[in-house]
Amino acid sequence: MIGLALKRLAQAPLIVLVVYTITFLLAWALPGSAVINDEGRQPPAAVLEAMERQYNLHDPWVFYWEYLEKASGVEYARARLGWTQRRSEAPVFDFGPSLRHQDWTVNEIIASTLPVSVALGLAAIFFALVIGIIAGIIGALRPNSILDLLSLCLALIGVSLPSFVTGAALLLIFPVWLGWGRVGGWGQLTDMLLPAFTLSLPFAAYIARLTRMGMIDVLSADYIRTARAKGAPERTVVLRHALKNAFLPVLSYLGPAASFAMTGSFVVEMVFNVPGVGQHFVNAVLTKDLFLIMGVVMIYSTLLILMNLIVDLLLIWIDPRTAV
């Protein structure tokens, strides 16, 4: 297990470098100028030119290497060793300034928005697990019963309804009509309930189907019959013996699901006014904010590599057979 972890960690910088290079090529190829405002005034041409030079926007080669050195901590190390004459209080991993949000560095933006998206994504996965597993068990215990069909219906709705519809409907019902919770706020635990629930629906639906299939398979297995024959109560059979094995496919789905939940929350963030990082994936590209694009993608790919690693390790820990 430790060997696997070390191997995967050693691969991580290579993967991030490949991601960096591809992102750079795509972002550089975006049409338009990164320093010109889309609307309104233009500063004098001399100013625009100076800005392009300052950010190395005149030369892709220089940009690629200098940014890589700053983002990877090489520049920081050199400054600490006294090899460069630049006096700087820059952070170790310096992802540069945001071209559009002039007063913020990419580091600051990520530090303020990433924890929000991570928390929202994890909360959504938690909801998805609770809803999905309960619905899945009910379905598996009485296949093709009314309850099973009902949970299938709900799953279908969960997958098909876009979150801007569910989100807007929930906002209208709870804060506006019933006066529970608030609109547009963020910072209290209750502010997280509606967006996390909205975000969880597609995942819950999928988990419900996975659990149901797994349970139906497992419930007809020999060791379950043995357990029943020994006279174990049905509750113990289902929750202790069957669920443990039926849960494995769900657990391996959790890795990608958690990544999706943390990155794919753009619409939910908009509707519930959640100050997360999802919107910057989209907006940074639209405004060709090069530093923000590169920074967000690099941080995120690192995070995803770690998430997948954690889930894989958990899987091995719970069921050592998967290590093979």
């Binding site: 906002l171 209208l172 608030r182 609109v183 547009g184 006014n273």
Partner: peptide
């Protein structure tokens, strides 16, 4: 409030 519709709901609730 980036979403104009959410701003409407926030106004309606008095936030």
């Amino acid at each position: 409030v980036s979403d104009a519709n959410t701003a409407q709901l926030a106004f309606q609730t008095g936030a």
